[in-house]
């Protein structure tokens, strides 16, 4: 159930994004990070990542080992990047559905899952874009997010979500044969977003969509290139 919904969402986003001809598209409120280093502490939540093999018939088979490595590489890369940007990083490793102890925190994490998916689906140009979002970007989790701010000592929270698939050999063969007949079959894709929430207001102040048919998260070097794109136009 869960898996199929994510799969469905991904297909929709790929279609939308590829039609729009973009790799990354940023939405933001124009928010800038405060100059004071003590007021721009970012809680980096564990990246929600899933890597899978795309089989010839279109089934995506999740790969646990790739996923585990990619998670670690992304988290490491973010830490290094924010260190260079002089942004204080709050380790959010333990802030996850698997371990959340208090229900307010849990509800906020679940709420961002839903809001993030809604932005992905309804903010960007395409058949599912809401008319009210064409010229505006105004999504919020509400000021309850202050709970996260006080509990973990952060000013912002960064959520990262990536679904990355790799064509199996049989899929590639199918694609090549199909192409010879002038038929296009989609190969592996990389869909993701990074979302920055201001914990004082709960507003999503910056949201960046990544959607492309290339990219790799299986090695630390390749991850760097993907995170570059994920964090394109990150507020300074």
């Amino acid at each position: 159930m869960l898996a199929s919904r994510i799969g469905l969402m991904k297909v929709l986003v790929v279609v939308t994004a590829i039609l729009a001809g973009c790799v990354t598209t940023t939405q933001q409120t124009g928010h800038t990070l405060p100059k004071d280093e003590g007021a721009r502490r970012i809680i980096v939540l564990p990246p929600d990542v899933e890597l899978s093999i795309l089989h010839a018939g279109g089934v995506e088979e999740p790969n646990a080992e790739w996923t585990r490595n990619a998670r670690k590489h992304i988290a490491d890369d973010l830490a290094e990047r924010f260190r260079r940007m002089n942004v204080a990083l709050v380790n959010g490793d333990r802030i996850a559905l698997e371990s959340a102890g208090d229900s307010s925190e849990l509800q906020l994490l679940k709420l961002h899952e839903v809001v993030g998916a809604s932005i992905l689906n309804h903010q960007y140009q395409g058949p599912r874009q809401l008319p009210t979002k064409v010229n505006s970007f105004d999504w919020s989790l509400g000021p309850e997010t202050r709970h996260l701010a006080t509990k973990h000592g952060g000013d912002y929270a960064l959520f990262v979500f990536v679904r990355d698939s790799y064509s199996s050999d049989a899929r590639i063969a199918t694609m090549i044969i199909a192409a010879a007949f002038g038929v296009g079959i989609q190969g592996g894709t990389q869909i993701g977003y990074a979302s920055l929430v201001d914990l004082r207001s709960g507003d999503v102040v910056w949201f960046n969509l990544l959607a492309r048919a290339t990219g790799d998260l299986r090695t630390a070097e390749a991850v760097q290139e993907t995170v570059n794109l994920l964090l394109a136009n990150f507020p300074q």
């Binding site: 089989h55 010839a56 018939g57 279109g58 049989a170 199918t174 044969i177 199909a178 038929v183």
Partner: peptide, 16 residues
């Protein structure tokens, strides 16, 4: 996976 893989060539044949 096995069944859809087999089926993918049928998809393709139809598409062709």
């Amino acid at each position: 996976i096995e069944q859809t893989n087999t089926f993918s060539f049928l998809q393709f044949a139809l598409a062709g």
